[in-house]
Simulated assay, not measured.
Amino acid sequence: MKKIYGLEDWVLDTNVKNNSRFVNVRIMFQYPYPDQKVLIDLKPKERLKKIGDGFKDTLKRLTDLNWFDYSELVGTKKRPTGIKAKVKYRVLSKLDKLDLIGSVWIESVEHATKIEIEDKMPDKFFCVKMTVVIEVEGLSHKKQDIEKRLVLIKAQSADDAYQKLEEQKEAFIKPYLNSDGHFVRWRIDSFDDCFETDINSIKDLNKSDGVEVYSQLKSRKNKTGTIWNGRF
């Protein structure tokens, strides 16, 4: 079941038939307008209303199936993006096949034991931006040669990424002889930023559309005064 998440975390009591088993779930609706071009000719407030009406239509169509009663809305009355409900176990397979549904998240299962998972943060890939100073033995300049370097590192958090690189500073600074016989070293001067990527494994680097490894939002002067008309 592709849309059902978290069911694998529960071991079912085989002495209880699934027809007698209930599951507490959070059901998230499919976005009503995946092709957003249908919203182009509407004013911004009209777009928001149309999207809200689309979600409300999804709620009505789902409840009209009479598969269960829901206990709580997810989102707002104007824009219900999902519901929380108690459903029969056999209803899960029906929800999985329903185009109205984006995902179903298991919160608890009757007559089942939840598998205890070690509470450990999984490693992620972080991109650390650093400034490296290039220093040549005996030479003094008013301006230093520097390098802005981006390093991809596997860590549990941004702080962990910084710490791992901090521990490598001494090894990184090891000098070498240049062609003139002077010692040269590349010294990490500062860690300037850390960006958490969406890379989950090395295999992601083989994606045909590439992967984002670093991003930094800035503002700049609009020299041409260009205003986008919202057409695409």
Rank of each mutant, 00 (worst) to 15 (best):
I106Y: 10
G82W: 04
H141Y: 05
L62M: 12
D64H: 06
E147N: 05
A161Q: 06
V128Q: 01
K129Q: 13
S108H: 14
L59R: 06
D41L: 14
I153K: 11
V151T: 10
R149F: 02
T131N: 15
S71E: 14
H141C: 01
R61W: 01
P80S: 02
V133H: 00
I106A: 06
L65Y: 06
K114C: 01
I173E: 15
P80A: 00
V91T: 13
V104E: 08
E167C: 04
T113H: 10
S93P: 09
T63Y: 08
L139T: 03
D99K: 14
V104S: 05
L95D: 04
T63M: 14
K114I: 02
E147Y: 04
D99Y: 14
I115C: 08
K50I: 00
V87G: 04
V87C: 03
W67D: 08
G138A: 01
V128D: 06
V136T: 10
V74N: 13
L73D: 03
R47P: 09
G54R: 02
L139I: 04
F68R: 04
K94D: 12
Q163C: 08
D41E: 13
K169H: 07
R61T: 08
Q156W: 03
K164D: 09
D41G: 06
V133L: 00
V136Y: 00
E110C: 00
F55N: 11
G102F: 05
I146D: 05
C127W: 00
V91K: 11
F172K: 05
I40N: 14
K124M: 13
D123C: 12
Q144G: 00
D57M: 04
K169R: 13
S157D: 02
A112S: 06
K120V: 12
D159T: 04
D159C: 00
I51C: 09
T131S: 07
L92H: 01
R149T: 04
G102P: 01
E110N: 07
